[in-house]
Design a protein around this nucleic acid. Structure first.
Lengths: 337, 337
DNA sequence: ATGAAAGCGCTAACAG
DNA sequence: CTGTTAGCGCTTTCAT
């Protein structure tokens, strides 16, 4: 239907190889004919068929971005970073939301592999990626974001989680807090382990006893509701005077739920209880919210992910890459502390 | 490199046409051999090459989603809707952020066309789409979201904008408001015209005079800052007692800026001034925000966009489609009115 | 029911 | 510098 390389070859009375060469700015092709070809191509509205090109070149200039949920405010920024870097490298990206569902994750990865993506960026629903058999058996260049997958040949772009919570803790302690709670996301998550480590480190350095009763974990989801529910439990479980004076949460969504629970019970923030989150999602900087938080450089993470992915693609398998690239989090002090 | 149809044909000592047929569940192929082929394929970890398949079938099972900015809280929900419908139809989607830049928009559309997408869903940066020459010259099936493009062969998924503002106005008037301001997004936008129409309609029906001084427009961007600035201007321009008692904004982001300006000037909301937005972005339902707003069914819009796109693709060009599909907005009454 | 062969649109040797 | 040819992996006639 469309105009192909052959159509324009026929028009010009040259072989279609010549047209291909001209269009690809190949060195040995007469300047004159090159011009003729190009102008003819424009005239006829020729659009190269990237699919056909991909078939012969074994490269599609396409990468996959598989994330849990673009609706979760953490990811749009990441996606933006990925994309911004992708335009400059001339790649297009397939967006896939797994909805935190491992089967769907696998389904997507397979679909993308069949579509011959050149590389994959993903935030898996869990750090156990053994369900992604085809991916693991493949040579597909892959970069993980925000989860640490300690496998060879993969690199993970993460933030220095321990340093993040440690900064936040140091700040709280300097402000006079001694009884600080940690609301985590379960022990399996690498990021949670690290954040807890930072929490404990700071406590140790300041000679403050680590109290298990101050360390709790949310069960399934890391959303507002979980934070809300858990905080209510905490308030109920503690003798009023033994309540912590500050709480640091695994992420901002949890922190928002925590705050809501506190307000509903009549607590003043930060006077009665200081609250710190992690991530710095878009919600947190709203004037109405003003959540103190440990910011992840989300946009940058996406950008770096894409850039290292491209590098991996370009260099084949000879070069060794780091297993993780660690960025620095930043403590954003706002109104909840 | 990978295992292809030929590899497995050789293994089995059959022609590769047979393998193709077996794998595609073609009617006339012996049940026995079909089984052998399939099990062999699984054994060898065969993955069909969708690129090659696309080349011969002229169909890639891929569509493009071109939006201004996934970071704008309106779009993640839309994207989610598109994607959710896409999985069931077995399509993958290319995500492109144009950053409200028409050249980039054109660049992306071209890139996607070269990658042989089967269809396109897009929210253009402006309703004038004449810069998208290649798209307009092509037969590419296209559905627009949230902008009305009155061209033949295209269909736009929009909300009944006039009805939306009219509902909101009726509600405000019933609450006793008589001096109500409208903060628009400029006269060019179809949605703005419609929303303004709804505003005026309600006024007329209630025999309230339409006053031009109450109708203003934000200049370039429809974000929080614009709303903030414009509201400050309004407060300064009006004699205190002649200020409107309510304001209805083109979108939620503007409304948030408006609220911020008001609060900073000491206004109580909703007592001193009621504020209504449009869209119902994620921010608006936060307990900290509780913005009354006219909700667009964003997820649904995305879903319907994908579904009608698929239908267009399936039916070729014989069938005629509506030029617009209009959904109903819903007034969500919260704390700012 | 199966095989042989053509061809989708393109690039990349290989000749000349 | 240009044309001829093979082939990327697959589907689909056309024979058998």
């Amino acid at each position: 239907m469309g105009v192909t390389i052959k159509t324009i070859a026929k028009e010009l009375g040259v072989s279609y190889a010549t047209v291909s060469r001209a269009l690809n700015d190949h060195p040995d092709v007469n300047e004159e004919t090159k011009k003729r070809v190009i102008s003819k191509a424009n005239e006829m509205g020729y659009q190269p068929n990237a699919i056909a090109r991909g078939l012969v070149n074994n490269e599609t200039k396409t990468i996959g971005l598989v994330i849990p949920d673009i609706t979760n405010p953490f990811f749009p920024q990441v996606a933006r970073g990925v994309e911004e870097a992708a335009v400059t490298a001339d790649y297009n990206i397939f967006l896939c939301n797994t909805n935190w569902n491992p089967e769907r994750e696998d389904h997507y990865v397979n679909a993308l592999m069949q579509k011959q993506i050149d590389g994959l960026i993903m935030t898996p629903s869990s750090e156990d990626v053994n369900h992604l058999k085809n991916l693991l058996n493949s040579q597909l260049k892959t970069v993980f974001i925000s989860s640490f997958i300690p496998l060879n040949d993969y690199t993970s772009i993460i933030v220095d989680n321990a340093k993040g919570t440690e900064k936040a803790m140091n700040y709280l302690i300097k402000k006079g807090h001694r009884n600080i709670a940690f609301i985590g996301a379960g022990e399996e998550r690498y990021a949670n382990q690290e954040r807890l480590k930072g929490y404990k480190n700071s406590l140790k350095k300041h000679d403050i006893k680590i109290e298990d009763k101050y360390i709790t974990n949310v069960k399934n989801s890391y959303d507002r509701k979980s934070g809300f529910d858990l905080m209510n439990q905490i308030i109920d479980n503690f003798n009023k005077k033994k309540l912590p004076t500050a709480v640091i949460c695994y992420n901002d969504l949890l922190a928002l739920g925590v705050i809501q629970a506190l307000r509903l019970k009549g607590f003043k923030i930060p006077e009665d209880m200081a609250v710190i989150g992690f991530d710095d999602i878009s919600f947190s900087s709203l004037p109405e919210v003003q959540l103190t938080t440990i910011a992840q450089p989300k946009y940058e993470m996406g950008k770096i992910a894409l850039e290292t992915l491209i590098e991996k693609i370009k260099t084949g398998s000879e070069k060794k890459f780091e297993n993780k690239i660690v960025l620095s989090p930043e403590l954003k002090i706002r109104a909840t502390t």
